[in-house]
Amino acid sequence: MKATDVLEHIKDRLGDAVHEAYMQVRKVGVSKRERYHIWVKIDRKKIRDAVNCLAEIQPYPHLCVISGYDDGDNVVLVYHFVINYETKKEAISVNFSVHLPKNDLCIDTITDLIPGALITEREKIEMLGVDFIGLEDKRRVFLPDDFPEGVYPWRRDEKGPEKMLHKLYEVGDRE
């Protein structure tokens, strides 16, 4: 499936849930071969549908990772997929972004559709304070157990890690 068809397929399947969609084309090498990145902003309730619609193109779409950042009133999660892998130079990167309002930070888990999403979902819980509905294993991954509750390192608001900062070059009173 060509990149433009993939984009049409997504728009077709998700309908009104698609808020914004565009395609980024990068030309690489001497041959100036085109490489496609599709960016789609969707409704957060439709994330599972988005995964299913990719699975129609290729079973087991490859989830690279879920990125996330603090965008003022919202926390934004970006789901990065690659489809058409196992081909020769035909793969396409598809990225779904969802906006979660800070007073209601939750989204459906996709671990039952893609078991490989477990670690990355757990990481979003501890780093951004996002809740994944239906996720059983919500333990921390990277932060230590004694790390204070309610501090989320990637947040830019009052829940950020500012209080915990330690400047390694400023340690004084050395013997």
């Binding site: 790390f147 900062l165 330690h166 400047k167 390694l168 070059y169």
Partner: peptide, 17 residues
């Protein structure tokens, strides 16, 4: 001295600290 990681929320070093 921390090197490139000279400031972080999860580091408590440097070693001689």
């Amino acid at each position: 001295s921390g090197g490139v990681f000279h400031e972080s929320y999860n580091l408590v070093g440097p070693v001689d600290n």
